[in-house]
Design a protein around this nucleic acid. Structure first.
Lengths: 80, 80
DNA sequence: AGATATTTGTTCGTATGTATC
DNA sequence: GGATACATACGAACAAATATC
């Protein structure tokens, strides 16, 4: 069960919690963050989880590989 | 940037502009009109874009396929 | 190579709450 | 009070990318 605050949207609360985990090292660089993991942990809809992920991506905290998932850290270079 | 008139609602202004594009051939039959394209171009909320689309649909100018988008022209028959 | 499963990408349908005019 | 407008949040369907068998 999750305790939601009423003064902020759910996707912001989720995004902030994940950001804290990244900054504390709970989610180290390279850690995989999937939409399903988020929806399962917080019991939210996929669209809501995607908003949180999009925000984290905009912040440069993660990058996303279609068909695979999102990873903690900066977008790696293409070349070897 | 968009210049909004004050004497009409935004969704009407958007709908009228799109209608003009359809009638002038800028948007030919089969042209895809998505909610996102509208919200991006005019900087309006999705609900507002949906009101414009609903109006165009009521006018018979477009038809909508859930999960795909709205297309210029009459609703096609189901059977091949 | 081919089929299948998983995951993200995209889009519409619907509903609710809030604020403004 | 009603119409308009925005943000949020749920669900559903299908497409595309990726990985596995």
């Amino acid at each position: 069960m999750v305790e939601w605050r009423r003064d902020t949207s759910r996707w912001r609360q989720v995004a902030n919690t994940i950001r804290a985990r990244i900054e504390s090292g709970t989610y180290p660089p390279g850690w995989l963050i999937s939409e399903k993991a988020i929806t399962d942990e917080w019991g939210i809809a996929r669209t809501t989880a995607r908003k949180a992920i999009a925000w984290l991506r905009d912040q440069g905290l993660i990058y996303t590989r279609p068909g695979y998932g999102s990873f903690v850290g900066p977008e790696p270079d293409d070349d070897a």
